[in-house]
Amino acid sequence: MFEHTEHDAKSSHALMEISDVSKIFTTKHATLPAVDGVNLTVNAGEVLCLVGESGCGKTTTARMAAGLSKPTAGTISYDGQDIWSLDKAGFGNFRTAVQYVHQDPYASLNPIRTVEATLTAPLRKHGLAKNGKEAWEQATQLLRRVNLTPPENYLSKFPHQLSGGQRQRVAVARALSLDPKLIIADESTSMLDVSIRVAMLNMLGSLRDDLGVGFLFITHDLAIAKYFGWQGRTAVMYLGKVVEYGPTPEVINNPQHPYTRALLDAVPEPDPDAAARKLEGGGLKSAEIPSLANLPSGCSFHPRCPIAEDGLCDVKEPALAPVARRSVSCHVVQREDGHPGDRIRPPEPAGATSTS
């Protein structure tokens, strides 16, 4: 039940398209644009990493991609079809093909179900196992796939008898039980210890390579995106918008948007000399994130941006445009395009004369 065809694994067609998607939440006192005009694609067998600070809209985007939340505007298409125009059977097939792995392994599993019951329930419900014996055999195969061996040691256990890493592997095994084409992993390693996190990422990588499963991988850590999505693409979100989007090596090694640079500067650096060269606070003018209920005019990042220009960045909202082999939403970076190897200049000292 785990095998995909060679065509599935190597196809480059758009498995999922997120087109001009927005999500607005309304309260008694405010309108909150959690996601605003996002465009993303995930190809078959590809990893797309979606990164940004907490509250930037990553999880809301992921929930819409999984069909768990309906967008206020825009379309979510799977295999070329708008998922919200599908009939009941078609939507059920979509929900089978796209599986979600939650952040918290302590809350995502039913505490009164054994591992065997957790894994066999979807198999029986969707007719992938004809009887109890066949369901048990497939459950053991799933546990081997996520490196929980020997499977017999885990099938009878309840979630509270497992470590955090083991629980998350069971959650991944459950997602694999329906032979998905796309897995949406929402901060699925953030609550794990570092050593367990690496093992988890290696396991997910083997699923990507062996089964041709595509991933929409949500994380706040660009180091994780670099490790897991190096051969894929990375989209950086800020306050509901994508501000930089392109091949992961380009985004990580030569970041163009000042927010992407700030995220990279926040990654711990073991080399003291390299750490000393990083600007404190990522070089940002402010650590305070604006409220969605009262977004700044123009570019929403300009109050924190070290290269923002008065009369431009605080007036006009930048579009996401091609820059240096990726797309960037920044007036200053777009103006200075033509030097793809150059890094963004640090802010000039007070009193210095700008030559730009």
Rank of each mutant, 00 (worst) to 15 (best):
K130S: 09
D36Y: 15
V51M: 12
P122D: 02
V38A: 00
G57W: 00
E53P: 13
A117N: 01
L48G: 00
K133I: 09
R63I: 01
G52Q: 00
G57K: 02
A66Q: 11
P71G: 11
L143G: 02
N131A: 10
A129Y: 13
T41I: 04
E46D: 01
A44N: 06
G132L: 04
L119N: 04
K133Y: 02
E116D: 14
P71R: 10
V101L: 06
K88M: 05
M64G: 00
A66C: 15
L109A: 02
T120E: 07
T96W: 12
V42C: 07
L142K: 03
V51Q: 14
V51D: 08
G80F: 03
A73H: 15
P122W: 08
A73D: 11
A66W: 14
R95Y: 05
L50W: 12
R145T: 06
A66M: 14
G57C: 01
N131F: 15
V42L: 13
A139V: 07
Q141W: 11
L119F: 05
V51Y: 08
T75C: 07
S69Y: 14
V115A: 03
G80Q: 01
L48R: 01
N131L: 14
L48H: 05
D82F: 12
K70Q: 15
V115F: 08
A44F: 07
G45T: 02
Q103D: 07
E134Q: 13
E134Y: 06
L32V: 09
S69R: 13
P71V: 06
G90Y: 05
D36Q: 12
L143I: 08
V98I: 11
T118P: 14
H126T: 12
M64E: 03
P105Q: 04
N110I: 11
T75N: 13
Q99A: 04
R95T: 09
S77C: 10
L48M: 04
K70V: 15
T41V: 04
Y100Q: 03
D36R: 13
R144N: 07
K130N: 12
F91W: 03
C49T: 03
F94V: 03
P122N: 01
G132C: 00
V146L: 12
V51H: 13
S85P: 04
A44W: 11
Q99W: 09
A121G: 00
H126E: 00
P71F: 10
V42I: 13
S54P: 12
A121N: 05
D104F: 04
D82K: 07
I83L: 07
R63H: 10
T114V: 09
C56W: 06
G67E: 13
K58C: 03
Q81K: 14
R144P: 02
A44S: 05
D104Y: 07
P33V: 12
I83P: 05
A129G: 13
D36N: 15
V101S: 11
E116L: 15
A65Q: 06
G37Y: 00
V98D: 08
L48V: 01
